[in-house]
Simulated assay, not measured.
Amino acid sequence: MDRADVVVLGTFVADLAFKAERMPVVGETLLGRGFAMGPGGKGSNQVIAAARAGAKSAMITRIGRDAFGEMARKTWEQDGVTTSHVLVDDISPTGAAFIFVSATNGDNAIIVESGAAANLSVSDIRAAQPLIASAKVFVTQFEQPIDAAVEGLRLAREHGVTTVLNPAPALPVGDAIYGYCDFVTPNETEAATLTGIDTSTDEGALRAATSLVERGARNVVVTLGAKGALLHGAVGTHFVPAFDISNVVDTTGAGDAFNGGFAVALSEGRPPLEAVRFGAAVAGLSVQKPGTAPSMPRRSEVDAFLRERS
């Protein structure tokens, strides 16, 4: 039976990244400053981040029988990701994402189409139960159907597996899902969308985190970009400062890097506060390179980064 320390349920999409000075308005055409195509999707990015950060990792998803699907398989193979529960969909294509990257500061805006992964079903997740039960940490997001995410979290909790929900993109969901979550990890925008609370201040971020805990989550980690992260819940309340990164090239995938690194640290038995710092290091390294999955750092890089800042 295949097993992994970190199991990720999510999507693979082909990232089509365009760099420009700004986003065009409707009806306008702009000349770009660069283009790149590569592997992406929140789930896939997170499983690659986890694998490179040192965990035996596995992916649960659907891909199409097409060139982007082949890209996915090659990407996972290169990093030793277990793919026994990657299903091939003969009807829908592999997903794709349009990514705008600011040529000025590296900020990004994304439109994602989940493609075949939008067909993931509860029965698909139940078929992966032995893999989920063998894990130390289970991670999912909202790019695939919500009922599939709920079932994955439920099965993981049933088997005593630590559960991480990265609620991205932020969607309206019933509170029941939070009861299956050991950690919910929105960024500040997602936390605001989920709770209706302004998270532009530390106090607002704490109120939003408190709201999600009151809805059932054991702990919440609100990632705050350059300001760091807030950990709140059963483990207490902690503001974790960000690492000082002077060479920001591309912030696309930084949240996925954080979640992958965070899951690895939890799988190694590290305390949550230490796991947040480890995830922040993975994210800090990722933004210094272009792309999403290709920017995820190796464990040796993460360890060296943390030693230099200890």
Score class of each variant (00 low, 15 high):
K289N: 14
A217M: 03
V173F: 02
E308M: 08
V221E: 06
A17E: 14
V6H: 01
G38P: 00
S44N: 10
A281V: 10
R207F: 13
A55F: 07
A53I: 11
A254Y: 13
T292P: 00
I63W: 08
T223S: 06
V222Q: 12
V282N: 12
D2R: 05
S84Y: 03
A149T: 11
F278Y: 15
M23V: 12
V184F: 08
M296D: 03
M71T: 15
D182R: 10
I110W: 09
L273Y: 15
L194G: 02
A209I: 09
Q144K: 07
V7Q: 08
L266I: 15
G196C: 07
A49C: 04
E158K: 14
A156G: 12
L31A: 14
A176P: 00
M71R: 11
D124H: 04
G54K: 04
V26W: 12
V150S: 09
R277F: 14
E190K: 05
A4S: 02
M296N: 02
A148H: 01
T82H: 14
T94V: 03
P39R: 09
E158T: 14
T163W: 06
M1P: 05
R33V: 14
V7E: 12
V47F: 05
R126K: 13
G54M: 05
A191F: 10
G69T: 09
A257M: 03
E268R: 14
E301P: 01
V101E: 08
D5T: 07
G64C: 09
S44P: 01
A275D: 06
R3N: 14
F18N: 05
R157H: 14
A229D: 09
A280P: 04
L31T: 15
L31W: 15
A149R: 00
G253L: 03
A49T: 04
G174V: 03
H238T: 15
N259R: 11
I99N: 00
A149P: 00
I60D: 02
G196S: 06
F138A: 05
D107A: 12
N259V: 15
S123C: 03
G174P: 00
L206G: 11
E151W: 04
